[in-house]
Nucleic acid binder design. Structure first.
Length: 271
DNA sequence: CAGTCGCCCTGCGTGC
DNA sequence: TGCACGCAGGGCGACT
């Protein structure tokens, strides 16, 4: 699944490819996404409407249509988008036909994603309005995170993955940011010093920005809109590197489980 | 309430 | 080879 850098990479490419295009038809081939996919309603809503903007909010992609209304897409763990004219492939669950004959195709083996049409800003707000601050926004500051951490016994790794605290940070970048900040993942959130909190906020921003610059991280399914893999994978310092040497200090990378998710860290340089 | 667990679903790698 | 099992970028509801 794509985390913030992967969704941002896709959204940027999508913006270049589809803004100004008109949707001629929507096809859905399954109803069983994370939220039921109502193809008939979506088709009726988007048909002959043009796309005026593409945005990302948290891990959601928002296609704003003319005359109001928006299509919201979440890629779950294994979702991807592509634009082409090729025949249907396994796990292609939805298709937006475009006016120049190409198709925007939603593919998702595990069906953890969603596609939803929001006719009004109010409906959009129900879906996106409760999301917390964007990590790359100026409002995500050490003071903000410190306030959220103040009374939390939650391990800091679990804490920064909570979408009600800060959005977009998933399992890869939580481990990566903690390594960059030199903070051990099992530390209770409230135990971080002001300096550590500041380092962590900076590390989160840095790792996300760097990953966006390199087109995101491909573990298995993630692809850019072009079909290419992300190039940040080779720059990961701890994620999926259990047993290997830490690139920073030469110590061994360890893997543990927190809240049911794998965490990777270096025992030597994270304290 | 904070925190963890199981579940949604499919595919892949591992080990027997 | 084949099967069983565990695990995988997310997120939600149901527990303790």
């Amino acid at each position: 699944m794509p985390e913030l850098p992967e969704v941002e990479t896709i959204a940027r490419a999508l913006r270049r490819a589809v803004v100004g295009r008109t949707l001629t038809r929507f096809y859905g081939y399954t109803e069983k996404l994370r939220q039921p996919l109502d193809a008939a309603t979506i088709n009726r809503s988007v048909k002959n409407r043009s796309i005026v903007a593409v945005a990302r909010r948290a891990k959601f992609i928002v296609l704003t249509l003319d005359h109001g209304g928006a299509v919201v897409i979440h890629l779950g763990m294994t979702g991807s988008l592509r634009i082409d004219k090729s025949p249907r492939r396994a796990h292609d669950h939805a298709v937006f036909a475009l006016d120049h004959g190409e198709k925007l195709v939603y593919n998702d083996p595990r069906k953890f994603g969603l596609i939803k049409f929001c006719p009004t800003d109010a409906e959009l707000k129900i879906l996106l309005g409760k999301l917390a601050v964007e990590p790359l926004a100026a409002a995500f500051t050490p003071a903000y995170l410190a306030a959220k951490n103040a009374r939390a016994a939650t391990p800091i790794k679990t804490q920064i993955m909570k979408q009600e605290i800060v959005v977009g940070v998933g399992n890869i970048y939580a481990s990566e940011a903690l390594h960059r900040a030199g903070v051990a993942p099992e530390r209770p959130a409230k135990s971080l010093t002001a300096a550590e909190t500041a380092a962590l906020v900076a590390a989160i921003k840095d790792v996300l920005k760097e990953s966006i610059k390199h087109g995101g991280t491909t573990i298995s399914d993630y692809r850019q809109l072009s079909g290419r893999e992300g190039n940040f994978t080779r720059r990961l310092r701890v994620y999926d590197r259990a047993g290997l040497d830490c690139r920073h200090c030469g110590g061994k990378i360890r893997k543990i489980t927190q809240a049911g998710r794998s965490t990777y860290f270096c025992e030597k340089c994270q304290v």
